[in-house]
């Protein structure tokens, strides 16, 4: 059992590190075909900021140039993810295109203060997998009563992006066996009862990510 996120325990955590004053980059950087997927840690955050900014450009301006950049980055990852999840190349290709089309149509729902671009794209890909591969439905929680802000607070965006980058780094630093187990859970290779086994998730960074999200929810509600 990994008991690390019980709500009663979240409140007792120390405060998150203060905002360090850095502004997120909002420039569109052209990216060619990626040769390696091993991102240098201190670039991860900047890249996540950029991908989020590009989804906002798709949302605000139906920007096809930004969409093309997002496609070149995410589509091969979605395809790889779906093939790891048991789809053949043809189905994975088709579903990856569907996921990118959904990103285009639902870009107005993307909230960079609540999820990074990679997190958001993952949820679309996962839902497509349940629909297309498992032919099943996935009931979703009720939407929050508020939608994304038209002009998201840049401090909130940066803070979320930093927490998410820290979590990704902590996962990358895990011993290979643990990292593989977590990956297998998300590739759909483990049933819900098999997930009950010890996965060794990086507790500190997960708690800190949860605390941030909870602060946001409570702040919005108050």
């Amino acid at each position: 059992m990994f008991d690390f996120t019980t709500p009663e325990k979240i409140a007792a955590q120390p405060a998150p590190p203060p905002y360090d004053g850095r502004e997120p980059k909002n420039v569109l950087r052209r990216k060619g075909q990626l040769v390696s997927n091993k991102a240098v840690p201190d670039q991860t955050m900047t890249e996540q900021d950029d991908w989020g900014a590009m989804i906002l450009r798709v949302s605000a301006n139906q920007d096809k140039e930004a969409f093309a950049a997002l496609f070149r980055h995410f589509a091969p990852r979605i395809k790889g993810f779906l093939m790891k999840s048991g789809a053949n190349a043809g189905l994975a290709e088709e579903c990856a295109q569907d996921v990118m089309a959904t990103l285009w149509h639902k870009a107005h729902l993307f909230d960079p203060t609540r999820a990074s671009a990679a997190t958001w794209v993952f949820t679309i890909a996962r839902n497509r997998r349940i629909d297309a591969l498992r032919k099943s439905r996935r009931p979703e929680p009720e939407d929050l009563p508020w939608g994304p802000e038209p002009e998201p607070d840049q401090h909130d965006v940066l803070e979320l992006s930093q927490e998410t980058a820290r979590l990704a780094e902590a996962l990358a630093d895990l011993p290979k066996a643990q990292r593989d187990l977590i990956s297998r859970a998300y590739f759909g290779e483990l049933s819900h009862s098999e997930i009950a086994a010890e996965t060794g998730l990086p507790l500190g960074t997960i708690k800190s990510r949860i605390r941030l999200a909870l602060d946001r929810l409570r702040h919005k509600l108050s």
Binding site: N37, I78, Y186, F187
Partner: peptide, 22 residues
């Protein structure tokens, strides 16, 4: 809030998984 963190783990797994060219 906890689900958001688990989804972020999923995002990190997908972001780092082997790419397959479209």
């Amino acid at each position: 809030a906890r689900l958001g963190a688990f989804d972020a783990v999923g995002g990190a797994v997908m972001d780092r998984c082997d790419v397959v060219a479209m």
